[in-house]
């Protein structure tokens, strides 16, 4: 029984090692596309909505000293 468990553990470890070694870091095209997608108007919708809410709620004038 113990030899069966050891064997199963070795097989599992082998599979994990194989998967990890096959797993590649995202290439340049993929990560650039992800970045551009994340900057698209759709992705920024929540920020835009907050800007509009601020715009509606902001009184005239404001602080002249910028951050």
């Amino acid at each position: 029984m113990i030899w069966f468990l050891v064997g199963a553990a070795i097989v599992c470890a082998g599979i994990v090692l194989f998967v990890v070694s096959r797993r590649r870091a995202p290439d340049g095209v993929t990560s650039f596309q992800r970045q551009i997608d994340a900057l698209s108007p759709e992705a920024r919708r929540s920020v835009v909505d907050r800007v509009q809410k601020l715009d509606e709620g902001t009184p005239e004038g404001g602080d002249l000293d910028g951050p």
Partner: peptide
Amino acid sequence: TAALEAVVLGAGH
């Protein structure tokens, strides 16, 4: 439209 908050909103995104 959000002159004072634009920078932090961008960083928030």
